[in-house]
Simulated assay, not measured.
Amino acid sequence: MAETPLIVVVEDEDHLAQGLLFNLQAEGYRTHLESDGDAALAYLLGTTDPIAAIVLDCMLPGADGFTIVRALREAQRFTPVLMLTARSRPEDVLEGLESGADDYLPKPFDLSILLVRIKSLLRRTAWQRAQTSGTATPSEPTEPTAEYAFNHRTIRFDQLELIAPNRTTHLTVMEADLLRYLTDREGEIIPRKAILEEVWQLHEDTDTRAIDNFIVRLRRYIEDDPAHPQHLITVRGIGYRFVANP
């Protein structure tokens, strides 16, 4: 019998935290709450209890959410992270994505939307396990197996991996979504605004220049020389273009 999934909530606003716990427990999840960033990081790095997903506020006493998710990724912990951000700060969304979060939800939010986002992250994790173990059956939901190969590298979208010579890089959901978006449009000039709106659903007042730092990290994954990119090209004043064969 499968163990009940554990959702860790890291939130310092008590009324919001208690509401999250109540609703998650009502959906049948086990829960664990941390309200301090330093304590949360120690728990997440130290626990042996398998964590299905993390709901992480970006602003916390002690270590903030960005620091926590970076530390988890550096420690090779790839538990799905849903980051909670302030609606008035789209830069929080971008920093969360850059630090390694898998999804985001701006405050205030509808609890039903949060539950749907968590279920989506858990489904993707289940798909990855099924693809890896070969246990998926026709009755189970499955994502189409998809790979994209270029320059001795292979992006495995179904398993959130980028395989390069001598290294395999684990991708977040958002990184994989952006790489899929770019490779599907190979050779096209993609405006920054299109990436923000169509991949990450950010609008209007977002400073599109903030996406550049995210692109820098992707270049470290896919370029032989990230300082002189051949595949992920900047189109000055507009956006980016992915080129499979320079």
Score class of each variant (00 low, 15 high):
Leu111Ala: 04
Trp127Met: 12
Pro106Trp: 04
Asp110Val: 10
Arg129Ile: 07
Thr132Val: 12
Arg129Lys: 12
Val116Trp: 00
Tyr104Arg: 04
Asp102Tyr: 05
Lys119Asp: 12
Ser120Phe: 04
Asp103Ile: 00
Leu122Thr: 11
Asp103Leu: 06
Ser112Ala: 13
Pro108Phe: 09
Gln128Asn: 10
Gln128Val: 14
Leu115Cys: 09
Arg117Phe: 03
Leu115Lys: 14
Gln131His: 14
Ser133Gly: 07
Arg123Lys: 12
Gly134Phe: 09
Tyr104Ala: 04
Val116His: 05
Asp102Pro: 10
Ile118Trp: 01
Thr125Lys: 03
Val116Asn: 07
Thr125Cys: 12
Thr132Lys: 11
Trp127Ser: 07
Leu111Met: 15
Arg124Met: 11
Leu105His: 08
Gln131Ile: 09
Ser133Thr: 15
Arg129Met: 11
Ser120Thr: 15
Asp110Met: 01
Ala130Trp: 14
Val116Ala: 13
Leu114Tyr: 02
Arg129Gln: 15
Asp103Tyr: 06
Gly134Tyr: 08
Ala126Val: 08
Pro106Gly: 01
Ala130Phe: 10
Thr132Tyr: 03
Trp127Leu: 02
Leu122Glu: 09
Tyr104Ser: 03
Gly134His: 08
Ser120Val: 12
Gln131Gly: 01
Lys119Thr: 11
Asp110Asn: 10
Ile113Thr: 14
Leu105Ala: 04
Lys107Pro: 06
Ile118His: 00
Phe109His: 01
Lys107Phe: 09
Phe109Ala: 01
Leu115Trp: 07
Ser112Glu: 11
Ser120Glu: 12
Thr125Tyr: 02
Trp127Lys: 09
Arg117Val: 05
Gly134Leu: 06
Ala126Pro: 02
Leu111Cys: 03
Leu115Gln: 15
Trp127His: 13
Leu105Asn: 07
Ala130Tyr: 08
Asp102Asn: 12
Ala126Ile: 02
Ser112Asn: 10
Asp110Ala: 06
Gly134Met: 09
Ser120Leu: 10
Pro106Cys: 02
Asp103Ala: 14
Ala101Lys: 04
Asp102Ser: 06
Pro108Ala: 07
Pro106Ala: 09
Pro106Phe: 06
Ala130His: 10
Ser112Thr: 12
Leu122Ala: 07
Arg123Ser: 09
Lys119Pro: 00
Leu105Ser: 08
Arg124Pro: 01
Arg124Ile: 13
Leu111Asp: 00
Gln128Gly: 07
Tyr104Asn: 02
Arg123Asp: 10
Ser112Phe: 03
Arg117Asn: 09
Arg129Val: 04
Leu111Ser: 06
